[in-house]
Nucleic acid binder design. Structure first.
Lengths: 199, 199
DNA sequence: GTGCCGATGTCACCTTGCGACATCACGCTA
DNA sequence: TAGCGTGATGTCGCAAGGTGACATCGGCAC
């Protein structure tokens, strides 16, 4: 810290492209290697060849590095809701199935690794819940834009999201490899059955 | 820091009873007065006549001071599930209605104030989501203890929780004052209708 | 009284997250 | 080529969250 400090050390490649992507990759690696809590933001930035402060300029917080995909998810959901013509619940289910095909299919291993990280940390679980909530809000808004009333839109979205959550949990669980789309359809059917059973 | 430090200032009442309750009350007041983020843990502890370190010994973190009731909620839910005899979905609905009567009824104003605090902070929203998730897990476990299979228990719980969430949101929303129990029954009916509609 | 023990205070520390400011790399223009 | 923006980055400092280690106090058993 006192020797050799007159710096020719500024070979440091400022201006590397895709800082955001490199930070996401570094975070993912480190979370897998050491766990989320054992990884500091400085570690992540360091591995990406950047500074801690830069990380915080690109991500709201440490958790956010794991959730960059959710914006895209939201777009696909909203677009599908807008384009699909059917009953409210069916529209929502269709939207989630679209997402399952376009985004999740072919990425089972990646998703499982990611999910393992999330499940290892309460903080990340909370963030995931919040992201899901944000998705729900987007779908509800898209439904309302089609002229549905608030309460129908909300309930259709919430129940569709429930179906997705349950199907997703089964898909990610180790063992099976049934396509997520199929699981969503199955669970939707089960939901109909369970709610209409007389108690 | 250098003058008058020989302390007779230890009049400080160590050993005041109900430290936990006083901290919760102080936190609630301060969150309402200044907002969650503008309140430091030291502020809360100070108002309760205690030290920051003591707060952290009684609560896992700053958010937790607002969620002490959820343990009791969990007990009531689990007990009702165990005692009620009906179809899985109906059992879950019954449990949430019991909670609505025993815990929420007569506290609308308090609940609204609390909810206003929560909605003002993303951090608190995340924590609320997590608490809800924990409740869901407890109900699922109680259902499984009655002999139901994993997937039925999960789906019944999740859909019941969805009904509760929607009903709760309507109840807390300003304006109405229909009892929460009634709202839960209404929403359950709506859910049956919406899922069985042909798309 | 003596001594144990649990609840509390004190202190030091690391990390998160952010504001303020200095720098660097690049493109543009004369 | 020099000079000048401009935006992305690094550096510095700091408030607050959260925790471990240790000192201290109050009561209680003996």
């Amino acid at each position: 810290m006192s020797q050799c400090d007159v710096g020719y050390h500024r070979r440091m490649a400022r201006w590397q492209p895709d800082a955001r992507g490199r930070l996401e990759a570094a975070a993912f690696e480190l979370f897998r290697e050491r766990g989320f809590e054992q990884t500091t933001v400085a570690d992540i930035a360091g591995r990406a060849g950047l500074d801690k402060r830069t990380f915080y300029r690109l991500f709201g917080d440490k958790r956010e590095a794991l959730f960059s995909g959710s914006a895209h998810l939201e777009e696909v959901l909203a677009k599908t809701v807008a384009e699909t013509d059917a009953g409210p619940f069916e529209v929502v289910i269709a939207a989630f199935r679209r997402v399952a095909e376009e985004i999740f299919a072919d990425r089972l291993e990646l998703v499982r690794a990611r999910q393992a990280i999330i499940e290892s940390s309460p903080e990340l679980q909370e963030r995931e819940l919040r992201k899901t909530g944000s998705l729900v809000a987007a779908v509800t808004a898209a439904l309302r834009a089609k002229g549905l009333d608030e309460s129908t839109a909300t309930l259709a979205t919430e129940s569709g999201a429930t179906v997705f959550r349950v199907a997703y949990a089964r898909w990610v669980a180790p063992g099976g490899d049934v396509p997520l789309t199929d699981l969503i359809a199955e669970v939707a059917t089960e939901l109909r059955a369970i709610t209409s059973a007389s108690g």
